[in-house]
């Protein structure tokens, strides 16, 4: 109805720029990426040599130790960091919500890490983790504990990176879950009180089930972002020592840019994009089924 009154110019004209960006800068490059993933690309004498190699790049994925480490480390990071963030975020959200207006300042301050560039987060923590003068080792020194090489030790490096990720992104979980906690129907929790529920029973039997969809969505949101982690790793460890903190994004970066192997790098990218889409689709399916049967 509206469009009839406006004519076709506004209708098509207003969508046109978005379509251009969509086709030229989203579809085309990804299509190009898929195309490149079937190629072996090399430079000789300043000229690009392209050779169609079929699925060879994809076959090579299985034997890539860097990629293997990247996948394992990324999965560990996603599961551990995201779980901690959701738990901590939920606890903070409930605390803030029950403090009501007196928690306004806390809410503001908690947001800060989300807004700071990931690279700077990396820089800050690189200084804090520093073996010689980092504040963490200084603190340990005061307690009489010998200095620890947080980022240099193969056993600790991944854990150290995960701690940074938790610190960086717990505020985001907090924010999403706070909206959910504050959106809980007040009268229902009052009904539970009158019906004789203790605070714990009210949480366990009423609030938690009602929060579950929000918790699930927060987990998915956070997992997607955690999966793409790059900035902090780039600055903190560059994937090292060895492959202790190698993550998928960093593997792509190394293969594509540092080793200048666009064909193989594209194959990793394409494989990653499709795997992630598949995992998310399955997760959403499971959640929908769970909702339906409840």
């Amino acid at each position: 109805m509206t469009s009839v009154q406006l004519g076709w110019m506004p209708k098509y004209g207003s969508l046109f720029p978005a379509v251009v960006f969509f086709l030229a800068l989203a579809v085309l490059p990804v299509a190009n990426l898929i195309f490149l993933s079937f190629m072996d690309i090399s430079w000789s004498g300043g000229v690009v040599q392209r050779e169609f190699v079929g699925l060879e790049n994809y076959a090579a994925l299985g034997d890539d130790p860097l990629l293997k480490a990247g996948i394992v480390n990324t999965l560990i990071l996603v599961v551990v960091a995201t779980s901690c963030q959701v738990l901590l975020g939920l606890a903070l959200a409930i605390a803030c919500s029950s403090l009501g207006h007196s928690s306004r300042l806390y809410r503001t301050l908690f947001i800060l890490p989300i807004l700071i560039p990931g690279i700077i987060i990396g820089a800050i923590w690189r200084l804090m983790y520093n073996f010689q003068f980092g504040i963490i080792n200084q603190g340990l020194d005061l307690l009489g504990i010998p200095a620890v090489d947080w980022l240099g030790s193969p056993h600790l490096a991944l854990a150290s990176v995960i701690v940074v990720d938790i610190w960086h992104w717990t505020p985001f979980s907090f924010l999403l879950l706070l909206a959910a906690v504050e959106g809980l129907p007040k009268d229902v929790s009052e009904a539970a009180k009158v019906d004789g529920a203790t605070a714990w029973q009210e949480f366990r039997r009423v609030s938690l089930p009602l929060l579950w969809p929000a918790i699930f969505m927060t987990f998915i949101f956070r997992a997607v972002i955690a999966f793409k982690v790059f900035d902090e790793v780039f600055l903190l460890t560059s994937g090292g020592p060895g492959t202790a903190t190698e993550v998928i994004s960093f593997t792509i970066y190394q293969r594509f840019f540092l080793q200048d192997n666009p064909g193989y790098g594209s194959a990793i990218s394409v494989a990653v994009i499709f795997s992630v889409a598949l995992i998310i689709a399955i997760a959403l399916q499971l959640q929908n089924r769970r909702e339906a049967t409840r």
Partner: peptide, 20 residues
Amino acid sequence: RTPRERDIAMVFQSYALYPH
């Protein structure tokens, strides 16, 4: 006393049924 210790029951304007 808390509501649970008073042995009362309440019907709310919005009913406040447990949606889940």
